[in-house]
């Protein structure tokens, strides 16, 4: 299968401190890749280099290449706004806007001018909410505030919001870490479902989650990529001793 994302020799610095060392990896299209590793290992930092979210940090600096669909996103003159539209993101803590449920999903459609008419906008919002498995729960209160939803619902709303702008890649930064088991299960089912249309990169601190949802897993430690393998292989017979220690719970 074709590679959607190709990262080669990526180094990342916060001011003088180096946070990522020489990361190289390839992400095939329409697969789920899980990033695991102990807290502070750099997995979230790495995720945020894939849509240049780290640009918001003034002292952050990147060296190396991230190539998405054949284009280096760190090349000078890159349209970061267009990049972020193509590479959507769901955050650790759900972050709905202080608007209605409908407007939350419609926001990305509107700013990117995707819709052709009012009816088209409505249809797109409905489809996104369907795809995020939220439609049945909110269809009767689309115009109420998004803050009235439960935590799990808010997170699925944020997924719907990301889907509505028709991205090709979705980055998820520990999307279920603040949720209860039932809400977590719903998100996991959703991730597997979404794989049909999207390439998904998910950061998780939960190894069972990684093994349940992902096709491939990358294990990070101290800013280095230790091992990157098919998930099945990684959890049954990892190549690296450190990976085995981590997975079996000997540290972390």
């Amino acid at each position: 299968m074709e590679n959607k994302i190709r990262v080669s020799n990526l180094n990342f610095f916060y001011g003088k401190a180096q946070a990522l060392y020489d990361i190289s990896l390839e992400v095939p299209e329409r697969e789920v890749i899980a990033f695991i590793g102990p807290s502070g290992c750099g997995k979230s930092t790495f995720l945020r280099t894939l849509n240049r979210m780290n640009d918001t940090i003034p002292i952050a600096r990147v060296a190396g290449d991230v190539i998405i669909d054949g284009e280096n996103i760190y090349a000078p003159g890159t349209d970061v706004v267009a990049l972020r539209r193509k590479v959507g993101m769901v955050f650790q803590k759900s972050n709905p806007f202080p608007k209605s449920i409908f407007e939350n999903v419609a926001y990305g459609i509107r700013i990117n001018g995707i819709h052709t008419s009012k009816t088209d906008l409505n249809e797109r919002v409905e489809k996104a909410l369907h795809d995020a498995a939220l439609w049945n729960e909110v269809k009767d209160r689309l115009n109420t505030s998004a803050f009235g939803l439960s935590g799990g619902q808010q997170q699925r709303l944020c997924i719907a919001r990301a889907l509505a702008v028709q991205p090709e890649v979705i980055l998820m930064d520990e999307p279920a870490s603040a949720l209860d088991p039932i809400a977590t299960q719903k998100i996991e089912e959703l991730v597997v479902e979404l794989k049909r249309d999207y390439t998904i990169v998910i950061v998780t601190h939960n190894m069972h989650q990684a093994s349940r949802v992902s096709d491939r897993t990358a294990f990070f430690m101290l800013g280095k990529l230790i091992e990157y393998n098919k998930t099945e292989k990684m959890f049954q017979n990892p190549d690296d001793r450190m990976t085995e220690d981590y997975i079996t719970g000997r540290f972390g």
């Binding site: 003159g77 890159t78 349209d79 970061v80 706004v81 267009a82 539209r85």
Partner: peptide, 8 residues
Amino acid sequence: MAQTGALG
């Protein structure tokens, strides 16, 4: 390539 929304 110009940044989307750069003028705004």
